[in-house]
Amino acid sequence: MNTEALKDLLYKIADDQLILGHRNSEWTGFGPLLEEDIAFSSMAQDKVGQSWQFYKILNELGESDPDTVAFMRNADQFHNCKFVELPNGEYDFSLIRHFLFDTAEGIRFNMLSTSSYEPVAQLAKKIKGEIKYHTMHANIWIKQLGSATEESIGRLQQALDYAMPYALGIFETSKFEADLKQEGIFDGEEALKAQWLTQIGEIIAETDLRMPEIQSLQPQLGGRYGEHTEHLQPLVEEMSEVFRVDPTADW
């Protein structure tokens, strides 16, 4: 088995979950409705928990322990896509990101549930059930606000247009696409993206929102190999502030 290819895949999944989990947690105490405050906090807990499970597999493959990996790296050592590190902005952007990203993750974990690498397949089978609640939540709000008032439709459309080039960065191809496919570990980003476009298109078609012209957009790439926006380093510093005070402390 090509361990380097496998680690490359696991790092980007784990880092995406950790960073978006952290962003989701920033809604705790600030949600526009109590239920939404709880929803984003719950999704944060799911995502950080899921990232921990992937860091544990990486640990078994020889990487440092999950806490060290999560809290002792700098921004340029993270493999998350730029999309997840963008600030929460207004609730419209957070909802659109939640919809676009979690739809992709639902498909990714579904694909990985038949992975030839058994620990990943087992974990993916578990997580795909959890992510279903995330996509269900996102779909409810996109359908509702995407066909409600002029303001709600306008805000979501603006957020969608802004988010789409970053969302396409989720599918930045890995250096190891061919190896991953050949070994049956993962079917690849292109296959994932094709399914994703269909699924988000179906939801958007049920609203008054317009699907952006995908072909004319320049995807925001680079995140998978350490190139990030200026927003990631401050996030990492805040997230790891307590841990770094005393990395040997027992919790």
């Binding site: 239920e35 709880i38 929803a39 719950s42 807990q45 799911d46 609640y133 269900m136 939540h137």
Partner: peptide
């Protein structure tokens, strides 16, 4: 259903 997320990961409202 008020929300698919509740006070613990395993509960809905």
């Amino acid at each position: 259903m008020k929300s698919p997320f509740g006070p613990a990961l395993c509960r809905s409202l």
